[in-house]
Design a protein around this nucleic acid. Structure first.
Lengths: 211, 211
DNA sequence: GCGCAAATCCCCATAATAGGGGATACAAAT
DNA sequence: ATTTGTATCCCCTATTATGGGGATTTGCGC
């Protein structure tokens, strides 16, 4: 069965070339092409396409907002963003809003068709440049080396329970050790983390990902 | 100039077919193919390739560890991971360790060659399935809609200072209000967040990004 | 065998937090 | 005009946390 596609792009030339491209390939069924995204969510509801090609930059309601609305109301519809820019903020914003793929307009026609097929079968086509941006972001987010405070295993256990909101008494019975032992551990933890209170310890632990 | 490639894969058949593939395309120059990654970082240093194709699953030192070492010592070398599995943990671990691309072994030869070219020109080739995984993770990380506990502005101010490790007394003098007022605010905050202690409040705040 | 770190427990004293009640003032909304 | 929400303050009591000491056992490395 053909994959049903609709297009949102303000430039007639782009719409026409995409239309032509899709009409010449019988794997796809072009259900409509629109010059603005004002009623995109409603249109998506009526036409119920498999995939939407959405220009990121349009006068009036831009593609990023449109994605958010469509995705919210029709989460099963796959959305591929099209852009001429490699502006990372907008890429991330779109992806966060629920876009499934991201292609540069310079993408060759053949690859674009491939992307449409990919997305329909559960993939997430991205131009390699875009993928690099996403991944780079991903690496930054996860790879902070985390200063080592030399906590012992037991101290880490105690700290974990503390972060989980337990009192000394609860920690003691949870670890099946005495109340005073918990106190000792926590004193050492505070010492090593250079803090004086529970909340400081908790904040430091969570912010620096110590556990 | 040809793109210099080296291969790490324990299976002879894979090595041979990759070798064959690269030898028949003059855009690439195969500088070596190895069956284990024990000395991968050292080999990478000597041969200084543009791109490394690394099997993720090898006896002895696995590809994930090898990536970390290579990336650390030779950050300019691009690394593409190859796998038969779509195991998200290992994908993320590899990417975090510095891999630049991720392809399934089922990738067609033509696309694999394309990926090698892409990565060399600054892209990040990923099989669409992998891209979807990465993106999905990305969405989860960023797009939690943050349950709204209806905290007032003042309550948020108090909570922020609490999270920063301040005592009631310090918060009071910092906001230039009375100690008992701080207490009142905090009582309401605990009520709204459904917690009973400072640490629970702090943890909830930080984990759910309330401030 | 000795030192050393880790884990366990103890006491004393002070400070801080939690939960239960209030009360007043002021502005915005109905 | 009355309710509603926010911000401000007060009291009493109980529980919890902090800081300063100190002690014992166990296992590991030299």
């Amino acid at each position: 069965m053909a994959i049903k596609v609709i297009i949102f792009d303000d430039k007639l030339s782009i719409r026409e070339s995409l239309e032509l491209l899709l009409l010449t390939d019988n794997r796809f069924d072009l259900a409509g092409a629109f010059e603005h995204a004002e009623d995109a969510a409603q249109i998506a509801g009526i036409l119920n396409p498999d995939v939407i090609l959405m220009d990121i930059d349009m006068p009036g309601k831009n593609g990023i907002q449109a994605v958010a609305e469509i995705h919210k109301k029709h989460p099963h519809i796959n959305i591929i963003m099209l852009t001429v820019f490699e502006d990372s903020d907008r890429v991330f914003q779109s992806l966060r809003n629920g876009a499934n793929g991201y292609l540069l307009k310079s993408t060759e026609p053949a690859k674009l068709l491939e992307a449409l097929a990919d997305i329909h079968s559960g993939g997430a086509p991205m131009s390699p440049v875009i993928a690099r941006m996403v991944m780079h972001h991903f690496q930054i987010e996860k790879a902070q080396p985390a200063t080592d405070y030399q906590l012992t295993t037991r101290e880490k256990e105690v700290l974990k329970l503390l972060v989980d909101g337990m009192s000394y008494k609860m920690i003691a019975s949870s670890l099946e050790i005495g109340f005073e032992t918990v106190r000792s551990h926590i004193k050492k933890i505070y010492d090593k983390l250079h803090v004086q209170t529970m909340t400081e310890a908790v904040t430091k632990t969570l912010r620096e990902g110590l556990i």
